[in-house]
Amino acid sequence: MSEDVHDTAGGQGVVARIDGLIAGPTAKAVVLGMMVFVLLLLMVPIVFTFVASFAESAAGALPSGFFTLDNWRTVLGLGDYGVQTSVGPGLAFSAMLATGGMVLNIIIGVPIAYALTRYNFFARDWINAIAILPLVPGIILGVAFLRTYPENAGSALGLIVGYALLKSPYMVLTVQSSFQSMDLQQLEESSRSLGASWPRTFLTVIVPNAKDGIIAGSIICWTLAAAEFNFTYMVYARGPRPFSLFLFENISNAPYLQSAAAISVYFLIVVAAITVLQLVGNRGFSTSSDR
């Protein structure tokens, strides 16, 4: 009885009253409408940018003069403006850095993800929080790197180490999600009872079973590192220019359609990444598997 009184008093009474006015189909329409609105907000500029990168002129309300590859030629360094605007060297350099960061992430991420999933130990929750939440934002890490490693902050090594730290939570979470769906204790015990040592069990039984999670984590880490901007922007001083700085230069200085083409290069990379993620069971850039 007292719950009924509570229900009609205060905020919850309002819920009950509005509830009477909303029929089931209305609620469905509101929620689906919300989703469609967000989907349009997110997708329209991406699709538009990609389409505009094939236009000749951006003078009118809508880009016009389809279809031309001029913007892409410029961005890919095949145009008349020479090599300095080309995406090639920066993308190759960033791909190398992202690969380095990804390898480091596999080395540090897989073991700690296993320890955190399989065992219960002192301060486990705290260590878990440190491993799965980004410790420092890129720009602050950049400032700290500038003073800590004055010679190396913006070097290839500095960038790889920075990327590995910044993206490590994605690897730990994705691999953890894979481990959580496995019966680790049983796998471990079966393997050991058949005579395998513990390191051998880990490397030849546990790790191969978490293959999909490791692949998904690697793809997410690689893609995010390949276009990492905040940290890169802060520590970069000289030498080959990473891809994200090329993007920044295009966004802030280049003609509209050329920026569109430069950004579209990255869109293609993301689409490729999402496609592979689907194949290993992750829907998009989510750290949890849908299987």
Binding site: M43, I46, A227, E228, F229, I274, R283, G284, F285
Partner: peptide, 18 residues
């Protein structure tokens, strides 16, 4: 779901362009 997750991959500067 994939499309909604897409912007997670985009750096802030690209979001600004969007």
């Amino acid at each position: 779901v994939s499309m909604i997750s897409f912007p997670i991959a985009l750096p802030g500067i690209v979001v600004a362009f969007m």
